[in-house]
Amino acid sequence: MLTTTQDLYTIMQERKSVRKYDPTFKITQAQLEEIISEATSAPSSSNLQPWRFLVIQDDATKKELRGIANDQEQIETCSAVIAVLGDAEMYKNVEKIYTQNVAEGHMGEEQKNTMIKNTNYLYPSAPLEILKNVATFDAGLISMQLMLIAKEKGFDTVTMGGFDKEKFTKRFELPQNLFPIVLIAIGKGAAPAYGSSRLPLSDIARFI
C-alpha cells in the first residue's frame, strides 16, 4: 500500500526496464492475479475496459514464445509473460459494466441507460481501425499502471512491442475480436537495468 505521495515518485523513478531475470524465481499465480486486478483501476474510454490478458507461466511455452518475440532472452528467463490484448468488441460488455455501476452505487438508472444508448450508437458502427486505436490507447494506460504496481510489490518488468503479432495470434488461437498489443515480462531482476536520460521539459512541453 502506498502511504505517501513521495512513495509514488520513488516507485516511478526506480521502475526500470529490466532484461536480465533470475530464471529460478517464480511469482505465484495468486500474486499475478492480484497485480492485474489492482491495475484494472486504470481509466478507459467510456469505461469499456477493452484490455484482456494472456498470462504465460509455462516454461516450454515461454521458450516457444521467445522465437516469436525476436529471440528476446527475458521472454524465457522471467517468471511470467503478461500478454496485453485489446478487444475490438469491447462495447458488447456495456450493459454488464453499467449495470454493475448502478449496483455499486456509482450512478442511477437514467445515467446508465444514457451511457448504454450512446455506446451502442457510437461504437458498433465505428471503423475497426478506430476501435483498435481506442483499445491500444487504453491498454497503454493499464500496462503502465501494472508495471508500477509490480514494482511496488518488489518485482521487475519490461514491456515489449517487438514480436510477430500475426504468429502470436495464430499460436494462441486468438478470436477475431482480440489482438495482441504488448508483452510484459515480470520477475526478479538478475542484473541492474540500464539508466536512461530524458529530454528536457523545454523540448517536450509548450505552455500558452
Rank of each mutant, 00 (worst) to 15 (best):
D156N: 14
E166S: 03
V55G: 03
D87T: 12
L178K: 02
T159A: 11
I11E: 02
I184E: 02
E38N: 09
G108W: 06
K16M: 11
P124E: 10
Y9N: 05
Y21H: 10
A205P: 03
N133E: 15
I97V: 15
L128G: 02
A83P: 11
G189A: 08
G187W: 01
R206G: 01
N47Y: 08
N47P: 06
D156C: 07
P50T: 13
D138S: 10
L54A: 06
D59P: 06
S44E: 03
I130Q: 08
S197L: 11
T136N: 00
I75Q: 06
F172L: 10
K170Q: 09
M115A: 13
Y121C: 09
N118Q: 10
D7P: 04
V94M: 04
P43I: 09
I56M: 11
E109F: 04
G195N: 11
I130K: 08
L122W: 08
L174H: 09
Q145H: 12
E14W: 01
Q49K: 10
A83I: 12
M12Q: 14
D203T: 14
T24N: 15
T119S: 12
S37A: 11
F163T: 08
P124G: 14
E76A: 15
G105I: 12
E129R: 07
E38V: 13
Q13M: 15
D164H: 03
Y194T: 08
L85F: 07
I208D: 05
F179L: 01
A60N: 06
R198C: 08
D59A: 14
I56D: 10
A30P: 02
V55K: 03
M160R: 12
N120M: 13
L146Q: 05
T24E: 15
F168P: 02
L85W: 05
E34C: 05
A135E: 03
Y123H: 12
T40L: 15
A42E: 01
G67T: 12
K26A: 12
E110Q: 05
G161W: 01
A60I: 05
T157Q: 10
N120D: 01
Y91S: 14
D59E: 13
E14K: 15
S17L: 00
K96C: 00
K132Y: 00
A42W: 00
Q31L: 05
M12N: 04
K188S: 08
I35Q: 03
V55A: 06
L146G: 04
K26G: 05
A69D: 12
D87S: 08
M144A: 04
I116E: 11
L148G: 02
V94C: 13
D203Y: 08
